[in-house]
Design a protein around this nucleic acid. Structure first.
Lengths: 165, 165, 165, 165
DNA sequence: TTTT
DNA sequence: TTTT
């Protein structure tokens, strides 16, 4: 009886760190900032804006997408789950890191856009139904998750979407 | 064992319809549009943009907020649940309408802003933690939900049943 | 600037209706009930339990999973988006139906279980990260979505790295 | 442009730690476990069950509810946001802790139940619409969140729910 | 380290 | 009926 669900919309702090392994495994890591507006209380107390940094971890078929499109400053929608892992730092002290293991990453139009002139900035919004991964709007369709449950969404040709109902 | 949760971000189609009753009850209704980008399939098929219209229903303490701030064009974040009700139309035919009963409505900065020059447009983002209702950024804190909408939830009778309180 | 997200946990009303098309497209439909407890207001008014029925629509690679495992009574977790479509009924009257287009369907242990003796009922909980679709716990692994973005989720060993693929 | 949303369903690890301050502030902390089923890969590799522990932080009007009802073993639904804070441990080393700041806590029937014999476990499901916080069914309406950002949520009595539609 |  |  369990649910562990995270939904984030924010901006990427710097270009993702991407690693491919001999085994074929792939991982991308990036930090995502979500911000809460500051405000002033009735009594005059000022509560400043607060930024939260999330460690996003992406694996498998989402990695190439992230590698290609997600950049410092990108406005991104992330769905995934929380995971905390521990490791021993250089001094032998046990450390804990909490990460968001993403099972969906999509572009969100925030007005910001990558410096490269690609068109993801024209996205009208996030399209969760689009599947596990996403591709910038107007991106050549041949960018595609090798076969994801969802990718079908973009790769399918005839089927579902021209169903007679 | 049940969960009925909806999260929407979109734009308001026209000014909300607000009604106050003698009983003190209040209801606001507005339509919210969410859009999916169009895209082109690998085979060249063009799947056009698609807009979905949601009937949002707001009650109780959220109503004054909606009445005051939510306008045609507003970028809004809504959390709530799905509810379908039926009614008989003029011709006696039974009709069904699905609505989203909101328990949270907040401004989302979409670049669009109400024509009145208020400050909700300065919001840096939605702040779900802000509570059941929301108020535009920098709004005097005394704007507050006097009473709430969830309440019903908590006064259960029978089943939960026989809890000693 | 758009988000259209639905998360439901409930019970399936009857065995899904599954259709495969010559085009290769596949669709499964089933109804899902979510319930709210009844309660009594401070003034003594009794608000009875309320059951909401959702029309779930599943496409593509999720269809075989649904066909095989989802049955009347199944406790199910569904993620998707809201979509309303219209059609003309037999009398020529325009009708609207709101459906939840699922991009994730998983078993949830509700104590209810399919009559067939399979083991999905032993699931410890829903595992959204597990992917777009899901498979009952302890199900022979060979049941699997033909390779979805998530499915990888089932193949991991230790952590990120060192993955054998 | 920001969203930081967490939805968890799991079991409480031990009785919450509750503190009230002279200022009137109140905080409750408890750990919540969510579990992923283990599974076996096609190649025979066994991936064991994995339990994730979340640090839940509750404030204001939700505190009395948590203090009274949430116990070790309770099946609980939590909605909130992720927050990471740092502190210096005894040895002067900077540590980070990620917590979930809840703005909604509700009972979920998981079959598990508090040791005290109350019946919250018989709840038919979580009712997110019920509000920012929650209390077991049948609670006298006077149990109420005094007035917090969310709290307002709990004070209404009659209205809305006996609206003529 | 991002954004507004 | 909104927005990009």
């Amino acid at each position: 009886m369990s649910l562990n669900k995270v939904i984030l919309i924010g901006n990427v702090g710097k270009d993702p760190d991407v690693r491919y392994f001999d085994s074929g495994a792939a991982v991308a890591n990036f930090s995502l900032a979500t911000s809460e507006r500051g405000y002033t209380l009735a009594n005059g107390t000022v509560v400043p804006e607060r930024t939260e940094w999330h460690n996003i971890v992406v694996r498998r078929d989402l990695v190439p997408f992230v590698e290609k499109w997600v950049k410092k400053g990108s406005g991104v929608y992330v769905e995934g789950k929380i995971r905390t892992r521990s490791y021993d730092d250089q001094t032998g002290v046990k450390r804990y890191v909490t990460e968001i293991h993403a099972d969906r990453v999509e572009f969100y139009n925030t007005g910001t856009r990558p410096a490269d002139g690609t068109q993801q900035n024209t996205n009208a919004g996030v399209q969760p139904i689009a599947g596990q991964s996403a591709q910038p709007a107007n991106t050549p369709v041949n960018y595609q998750q090798p076969t994801s449950s969802q990718s079908g969404a973009f790769s399918e040709t005839s089927d579902a979407d021209d169903l007679p109902f």
